[in-house]
Design a protein around this nucleic acid. Sequence first.
DNA 1: GTATCATATGCTAAAACTTGCATATGGGGG
DNA 2: CCCCCATATGCAAGTTTTAGCATATGATAC
Lengths: 127, 127
Amino acid sequence: MDNWAEAFQALGNRERLRLFFLLVQRPDGCCVCELVEALELPQYQVSKHLRALRRAGLIKSVRMGRWAYYTVADSRVGREMAAFTIRVIPDSALTDAVFRLRAAVARREDGRCVVQARRPGDNNARN
Amino acid sequence: MDNWAEAFQALGNRERLRLFFLLVQRPDGCCVCELVEALELPQYQVSKHLRALRRAGLIKSVRMGRWAYYTVADSRVGREMAAFTIRVIPDSALTDAVFRLRAAVARREDGRCVVQARRPGDNNARN
DNA sequence: GTATCATATGCTAAAACTTGCATATGGGGG
DNA sequence: CCCCCATATGCAAGTTTTAGCATATGATAC
């Protein structure tokens, strides 16, 4: 019961819900910089929101070199919430973010993220 | 999207989740005093949490004489969340509350709530 | 080693939420 | 009308969340 309340609470935030939704659409996971690009949020915010989602048991992360890949957790809470958000949230609500994420992922080389190259002036996330 | 974030946030609280769960189990609705008895919370808390759930579009209320009957809202958000909580939260998590609620409802006369008679000393909710 | 990129985290101020108590409102009944 | 019951709400204090900025950590490349 309390696990579920925590999960609800974690998703009870616009940005975190978007974040989770993106991860749901990408079962093999993506790294923080790709999410930063997709959501157009400062990197520190993405990191913190990811941590909140992880604490709620919704997602997990794996380090690959300097990158951290996040995926929906293979837990009850993760699976059920993923299914629910897919069922309930229309893709149209995130077309732009999904598009940008796809673009970022498409730019990978040898399956490794090469987003980088955000020039100075962006909202943190670089420099 | 934002509607869903709000709904998640509303359910992201232990007491509100219990509250909603009870209402889901009782499609014809129940009144505040019955919920107070079931959850063993002060009346003002139940009222406030109900308001939060209503603002999120999850439940609705109808005045019947001096009683207010709450039910799961017949909205997308209400229906989907009801189905989800039923699916995901084990009855065993709320056996006691459900039991007390059933007892309170069983005490109705002519379908009207007659819980009353909480004597002084209880946590608000009377007096 | 140093430099650099990707990510995480500590700190702070502002905002939102929770809780408790008191009290208000709305509706009956005598 | 006055009193009582059921419910709602205003306010204050304490707690948690959030957002932003700076900076730390981890890891690779040179």
